[in-house]
Amino acid sequence: MLNIKDLYTAVENKKILEGLNLSIKAGEVHAIMGPNGSGKSTLANILAGRDGYQVTKGSVSYQDKNLLDLSPEERAREGVFLAFQYPVEIPGVNNIYLLKAALNAIRKHKGESELDAMEFMTLVKEKMKLVQMNEDLLSRSVNQGFSGGEKKRNEVFQMTILEPKLAILDETDSGLDIDALKIVANGVNSLRNDERAFIVVTHYQRLLDYIKPDYVHVLGNGKIIKSGGPELAIELEEKGYDWIN
């Protein structure tokens, strides 16, 4: 589904990724771990299409398309979803209207019929329970006045509605207490199937107790320096990152 080959990137001429290779198949969950500044969030942002990152070398193909050629909105319509590390507040833009328009843009792109207000609300009610979203948060502006935990939960809620093919979770666990973490993980697990892939970027092994990865990769100096199964995460938790180098 996703093939990253020898990727080099820079931000304002500062090198961040230096020769990253990663291949992900449908149905897999890949955890990306690594110390601060190792390039984890850069990878998430590049895949979603944020401006400001120069790709100096390498390629990213997604479902046989050159992902780097697509605008962020085209990627979203093709099924890429980024759950943000720091979801931004957007006063004046309604949460639920945005989500409905997003879903219909994606459905239209897939050649499916758009949902009307009734059908959409039925879907929303169902998914809300899954991540225990408070109903009055939905009618507010995007993330406005949400607590840190509510913002993260809203990201996962959006993900359950939009049903992406490739979901990237950028430190979704940070700032969550254990109960919220379980709820968020539950939302993610409900989406797991053979056609969908996940990239779970995280600092800590804790999240991976609830979202069991198929592969764990350690990022260091802009590339993957070690890969393994779930046991690698446990080893990292015990020994830290230093032993790898």
């Binding site: 979603a48 299409g49 944020r50 401006d51 605008s71 962020p72 909105e73 990627r75 979203a76 319509r77 979803f81 980024l82 943000f84 979801p87 931004v88 957007i90 006063p91 004046g92 833009v93 945005l98 989500l99 328009a101 997003a102 843009a105 994606i106 792109h109 502006s141 995007v142 959006q158 939009l162």
Partner: peptide
């Protein structure tokens, strides 16, 4: 970027944010 990552095209996102302001 947030709006575009939610499938909103750039022109619409700009117009929408201007409206919100």
């Amino acid at each position: 970027f947030y709006l575009r990552s939610r499938a909103v095209d750039e022109k619409t996102a700009r117009s929408l944010l201007t409206y919100a302001f």
